[in-house]
Amino acid sequence: MSDGNTDVPRHIVSAALGPGLPAKVPAGEYEDCPVTQAVQMLGDKWTLLIVMMLAERPHRYNELRRRVEGISQRMLTRTLRVLEEERIVTRTVFPTVPPGVEYGLSERGRELLVPLAGLADWVIRGRAA
């Protein structure tokens, strides 16, 4: 492979991604693919930012809202719910008046930081080239 060639050898694609895609990919199968769904969820406008904030430490709802300029209450709630449904974020309710709620990364969420760090590294290296 020459320096200018961007084609990835088939054996590398197969090793990384498995057997590969069929000649024609049905739209329904693409939509139902868990990898597609994960990329769509992480590609949401606010998701990565919230995950990275929670990687620092757990946050209360209003603390997240103050730190994320431009996010609406509705969007923050929706984003946190999706992350909780995906088991990336945990929600802890404290028995105070009014009840305090704190969000933090779950074990699965902390595991997500590894591929995200790899992706960030890949992006930064690509921009430097």
Score class of each variant (00 low, 15 high):
Ala117Trp: 05
Val13Met: 07
Arg10Ile: 13
Ser106Gln: 03
Glu107Lys: 10
Gly126Ile: 00
Phe94Asn: 00
Glu86Pro: 07
Val25Gly: 02
Thr92Phe: 01
Met53His: 10
Pro95Asn: 06
Thr90Val: 02
Glu85Met: 12
Trp122Val: 11
Phe94Leu: 05
Ser72Cys: 12
Ala27Tyr: 03
Gln73Pro: 12
Pro34Gln: 07
Ala23Trp: 02
Ala16Cys: 13
Gly109Asn: 12
Glu29Gln: 10
Leu42Lys: 09
Glu102Cys: 09
Val93Cys: 15
Asn5Phe: 01
Pro95Trp: 03
His11Glu: 15
Val97Cys: 10
Val35Tyr: 03
Ser14Leu: 08
Leu83Gln: 01
Arg74Cys: 14
Gly4Lys: 13
Thr79Gln: 01
Val82Lys: 13
Asp3Tyr: 02
Asp7Arg: 14
Lys24Arg: 12
Gly104Phe: 06
Leu80Ala: 08
Asp3Met: 01
Glu56Asn: 04
Asp7Gly: 05
Val114His: 11
Thr6Arg: 09
Thr77Gln: 14
Pro99Ala: 11
Val114Gly: 09
Asp121Gln: 12
Asp32Met: 07
Met52Ala: 12
Met52His: 11
Arg78Ser: 15
Val51Lys: 00
Glu102Asn: 03
Thr90Pro: 01
Ala16Ile: 13
Leu48Trp: 00
Ile50Ala: 04
Arg108His: 15
Leu49Gln: 12
Ile12Trp: 02
Thr47Pro: 07
Ile12Gln: 00
Thr36Lys: 01
Gly118Thr: 08
Glu111Asn: 12
Gly100Gln: 15
Ser72Leu: 12
Ser14Asp: 08
Thr77Pro: 06
Val39Pro: 02
Arg108Val: 13
Leu54Ser: 04
Glu107Ser: 07
Arg60Ala: 10
Ile50Leu: 06
Glu31Ile: 04
Asn5Tyr: 03
Ala117Ile: 04
His11Met: 15
Thr96Ile: 05
Glu84Gln: 07
Arg65Cys: 03
Asp121Lys: 15
Ala38Leu: 14
Pro98Arg: 13
Leu48Asn: 11
Arg127Asp: 06
Cys33Val: 01
Gly126Gln: 03
Val39Met: 04
Arg65Ala: 07
Gln73Gly: 15
Arg91Asp: 14
Val8Asn: 02
Arg65Gly: 01
Thr47Trp: 04
Val114Glu: 07
His11Gly: 13
Arg78Pro: 10
Asp3Glu: 14
Lys45Pro: 03
Thr90Asn: 08
Val68Asp: 06
Val35Ile: 06
Arg81Val: 08
Ala27Val: 13
Arg78Trp: 15
Leu80Ile: 05
Ala129Pro: 03
Thr36Gly: 05
Thr36Leu: 00
Ala120Asp: 05
Asp7Ala: 08
